[in-house]
């Protein structure tokens, strides 16, 4: 039996459901499924410009595992570009970083430091808040 998959920590889900090519002649190919952890790997390595060691630590996985996820993410994006496929984001084996809350009234996300005991939205003071953690 294979070893169980460790959950990959991510800070926030991607801000989109997918990407679509435009100006193409033929349609309806199967979309490429990009996992949340793959999106996060691309973000950490190529947008936040971390090295793989630091990025792996943030996601709570080993460096080789990070490299594998990153590799797979790049291949999927390349495949989508070359074969003009849609990119769809799917949940995968990710877990949201626990410390973030979302306000259901104003949609802002925020942290609550341990020195603060009020459980309310940092912006509109609504108490209609929840943890960002889908699991």
């Amino acid at each position: 039996m294979p070893r169980r998959r460790r959950l990959r920590k991510i800070v926030a889900p991607p801000g989109f459901k997918g990407y679509k090519p435009y100006g193409i002649t033929h349609v309806s190919k199967e979309p490429v499924e990009l996992l949340y952890e793959e999106y996060e790997a691309i973000k950490l390595a190529d947008y936040d410009l971390l090295n793989h060691e630091e990025a792996a630590n943030l996601m709570g996985i080993s460096r080789p595992t990070f490299a594998r996820i990153y590799e797979s993410a790049r291949r999927k994006i390349a495949k989508a570009l070359v074969e003009t496929r849609e990119i769809k984001t799917v949940y995968g084996n990710a877990i949201m970083d626990k410390s973030w809350f979302v306000c259901n009234d104003c949609n802002s996300r925020f942290t609550i430091p341990k020195t603060m005991d009020k459980k309310q939205c940092a912006l509109c003071a609504s108490s209609n808040i929840e943890l960002i953690n889908k699991q």
Partner: peptide, 8 residues
């Protein structure tokens, strides 16, 4: 312990 707020 600085509170962070993200507005999108």
């Amino acid at each position: 312990d600085i509170q962070m707020v993200i507005i999108q």
